[in-house]
Amino acid sequence: MNGARRIVRLLRGDPRAGQVVPPSGFTARLTQFTSGAMAFLAVFAMALSFSAGHLAERWSQALARTATVRISAPEGQMEAQTIAVLEVLRTTPGVASARPMSLDEQRALLEPWFGPDLPVETLPLPRMVELTETAEGVDAEALRLRLAGEAPGAVLDDHTRWRRPLVRAADRLRGLGWLSIGLIGAAMAAMITLAANSALAANAQVIEVLRLIGARDSFIARAFVRRFTRRALEGAAIGTALAMLAVAFLPGEGDDGFLSGLGFRGWDWLWPLALPPLAAFVAFWATRFAAFRVLKGVT
């Protein structure tokens, strides 16, 4: 990118050209600190986004692979409908296998609620058929329609009812994470514009003298841009490094809970590395914009 090359050239360029503007220790450290803090927050927002994304993926995967068909029918039709359901499932694309649950299995499912001595045989319990989906998955709506035709007592429970809101929540969380990163970037641009403006105002005399001895606007702007870009880059690098360490040492691994899953995985770790250059880019344009606006008012 052209802009990136310009920034690199700027940071490497003649340091004496930067000295024409007097040093401003306090604003310098403030800019650095803010940029660092923003980068730190951005890393966490990023971690949040990635974790939410992984979570949504895991939930949809784990839950999508199995489903059950529940058959409630009068005593006499139970067998016939179960056979009909199995026949439908056998010919449904996306179904890897299907098998009716045994009474023992159903008892085991109910045990936590009713205790081990429940006389399952005597209860009018629905019959359960467990099915496993292939990787392509089952078209749940089509299957429902077919079941309604072949076995009116059969109800497909593909877990989407309670899976969907969870996945949606995780997706929303991921979106909010990226939005936060955007807002952090905008706040940083605003802050650097303010700092640059105050530096430009404090150096009005210097700018005037430079113009009078024949300096072009770009030369004067560069002295400021260079300084702020560099500070933003340094601050963001420190903030990013600290935040990445903090994320790396977050406790909890392996457990399925949301909090213990917060963090980066594999290639995710490369993403925060984009933050310092991004901060430099934001600082570059914010300062340049501020400088040229001020210079317009100087002859």
């Binding site: 113009r211 009078l212 001895i213 024949g214 606007d217």
Partner: peptide, 10 residues
């Protein structure tokens, strides 16, 4: 333009 003014001042 502004750059020409700068060069002239030199």
């Amino acid at each position: 333009d502004r750059d020409q003014v700068a060069r002239t001042r030199r």
